[in-house]
Nucleic acid binder design. Structure first.
Lengths: 149, 149
DNA sequence: ACATTGTCTACCAAATTTGTAGAATATTAT
DNA sequence: ATAATATTCTACAAATTTGGTAGACAATGT
């Protein structure tokens, strides 16, 4: 499971993506719109700034804005920032590699091959899930509810 | 990431799979072979028994043995027992469904579609990773080290 | 000057993880 | 019978992670 922090980050990023190149959004607005505790969201947005995914402006009319195009930011990237490795075991992680402490000889590990397969499938799917794809979903959902009215 | 408990469970199950229909193995032996804290492993094996994946015999010569064929038990099943949902968010979990508490209207959630895709890819890969596939890996690794000698 | 908004650090409660401890129970060999 | 072996069951606990809150401070626009 993904942490709430990570899910909040995704929702905040989608909100910023919807506002891409249209100025900045305040934490308060994003928090209210997306149902995220404001003070918690502040920390999250700071981390996103450190990761160079967003930038901010202080003062009245200030807030956060996306630095990259919505199709350049994926769930995989956000997951790694907030929840760490996508891999199920550290010894097959691409970005957070560590030897497993219960594993005396990595080359002899009969788990790795399947762990790598799982990682790759998950990773690919998570990389395909870009902010843009979320925006597209949002749009098509809105279209659908409009039709049913 | 997978919990250590789950990883231990997989290793223990592979060990039992290697001994399938050849009698029972004691906790002590499995713990020593697979580098798992014995007392912790006891708890794990009890949970596996409750899940009807293994059975046990007490007393001298006793221990645990696999109830199902090695190709009938997958990593997906073990993951669910020890780490819960494979899905990244509760609202797309097949076995542990729950509404997300930050989500007012599930039908309007623009995250679900991609979350379902990720879940399905991960799930499929985890279901393909059966105890038998681990045994096969183990065998081919042993063959390989034999050739390099 | 003042209201607004982000920045930074510290703190905190609850849950989860990763075990350990020990007594009780069942089984088997002698 | 009894000793040895092995599972069963319950409780406990330290360390880490999660999901936040609080408050002082800094920057910015009007």
């Amino acid at each position: 499971m993904m942490s709430k922090k990570c899910k909040y980050a995704i929702k905040a990023m989608v909100r910023l993506a919807a506002n891409y190149q249209k100025g900045s959004l305040s934490t308060a607005i994003i928090a209210a719109d997306e149902n995220i505790p404001k003070k918690f969201l502040e920390q999250i947005l700071l981390e996103l700034k450190q990761a160079k995914l967003v930038n901010s402006k202080q003062g009245i009319g200030g807030g956060y804005y996306l630095l990259k195009s919505p199709n350049e930011v994926s769930m995989a990237e956000l997951y790694r920032i907030f929840d760490g490795p996508i891999a199920l075991v550290p010894c097959v992680s691409l970005y957070y590699y560590e030897p497993c402490d219960d594993c005396p000889d990595e080359a002899a590990c009969y788990l790795r091959k399947e762990m790598i397969k799982v990682r790759d499938k998950t990773r690919t799917a998570m990389m395909k899930a870009t902010l843009q794809s979320f925006l597209d979903n949002q749009k098509s959902i809105k279209q659908q509810t409009k039709r049913t009215l």
